[in-house]
Computed example of a mutant assay.
Amino acid sequence: MILDLLAPTLDFAGDTDRLNPLRLFLEADIVVQAIMFGLLLASVWVWTIIITFSLRIGGVNRRCGEYERGFWEAENFETFQKQRGRGDVPMGKVAGAGLAEWRRNAQLRTLDPEGARQRIALAMNSSVGEEADLLSNRLNFLATVGSVAPFVGLFGTVWGIMNSFFQIGQQQNSSLAVVAPGISEALFATAIGLFAAIPAVIAYNRFSHRVNMVEGRLQRFADKLHMALTRQLESR
């Protein structure tokens, strides 16, 4: 087995008095091993989300900034939207929803200004909500790991300690040398649970704040566009 081959290499130059995480994993009970392995997988997925989300939110802010600057400088909103509003630009999708509703109201024979204002606002607010939901789609996994992983690790610890006490009964020997290895392996499960949970909680709080900032930026853009479009409708 690959892990069995790697374990001796992690003895830190033959110093067996130092903690060897891999050996703790290999010598643990099968239930504790399964819990550790699951927590390690969760930790890998957490860091994958952290890296990909950081890149994604940075790209979203950059694209929205470029789009917004060009949008307000354009002479014609619809022409600009056709040229630059395509692709993964949340602000472009919000503008597209507002402009589409504006066109539908402008084509009505009898215009109801108040109803038009409400419909345009609802269209853009709905788009803002959809974009915020898409951004935060994978953050629920961070919240789940952050709240559940310590308890999963604790379950592994409890199971390992129960197994250690069982070994005391089997060997009729309560010396610390008998139970210490099993307890160390059990506590290692809690350590891995915390290793997975702490980054998940920090990342969830940070990324939730950044999603809220993007949502607020989209909402402010929608409000400004709503004022511009309703002024055009009322000037007919």
Rank of each mutant, 00 (worst) to 15 (best):
E114Q: 15
F37A: 14
A106D: 13
P90Q: 04
L19F: 05
S43W: 04
I49G: 06
A97F: 05
A28K: 00
V32H: 00
L111Y: 07
A42H: 06
E68Q: 12
A13V: 05
G96S: 14
R86K: 11
R103T: 11
C64R: 12
Y67C: 03
I30Y: 09
A100L: 08
R69H: 14
L108H: 15
G98R: 10
V89D: 02
L22E: 03
L24P: 00
N20Q: 04
V44C: 11
I51M: 12
G92Y: 01
D15C: 01
F80I: 08
F37E: 03
T16W: 00
D29P: 07
G96K: 13
A42V: 03
K82T: 11
R62Y: 08
R103C: 09
R56L: 08
F80S: 07
L10Q: 04
E75T: 12
F80P: 03
D29Y: 04
F80V: 01
R103F: 13
Q81K: 04
F25I: 02
A116P: 10
N20V: 05
R104C: 08
A100P: 06
A100N: 12
E73R: 14
R56E: 14
G98I: 09
W102K: 12
N20S: 07
P21G: 08
R84N: 11
A100G: 13
I50F: 07
T48D: 10
G14K: 02
A97T: 04
G85D: 02
E73S: 15
R84P: 01
V32Q: 00
Q107V: 10
A28T: 00
T9S: 13
Q33E: 02
Y67W: 07
I49M: 06
D11E: 12
A34M: 09
R103N: 15
L41F: 08
L10K: 00
L99Y: 11
M91Q: 09
A106E: 13
F12P: 03
G98Q: 10
W45S: 11
F53S: 09
V89N: 05
F77D: 03
R103A: 12
A28I: 01
R18G: 02
I50S: 06
R63L: 07
W102M: 12
P21V: 04
L39P: 00
L55W: 12
G115K: 14
T16Y: 01
E66Y: 13
L40I: 02
R56P: 03
E75Q: 14
Q81N: 09
R109K: 15
W47P: 03
E101Q: 15
G87V: 01
F77Q: 10
E27Y: 05
L22A: 01
W102Q: 09
D17R: 08
R56V: 11
C64Y: 08
V60Y: 03
M91T: 13
Q81L: 14
K93P: 06
P113I: 11
W47D: 08
G92E: 01
L55C: 05
A116T: 13
R23G: 00
N76C: 08
W47H: 14
L19W: 02
E114I: 14
F12Y: 14
D17I: 02
K82H: 13
V89R: 01
G92Q: 01
L39S: 00
V46E: 06
G38L: 12
M91R: 05
R18H: 03
G85N: 02
T110S: 14
D11Y: 11
F71L: 06
D17A: 09
Q83N: 09
V31R: 00
N105K: 15
V60K: 12
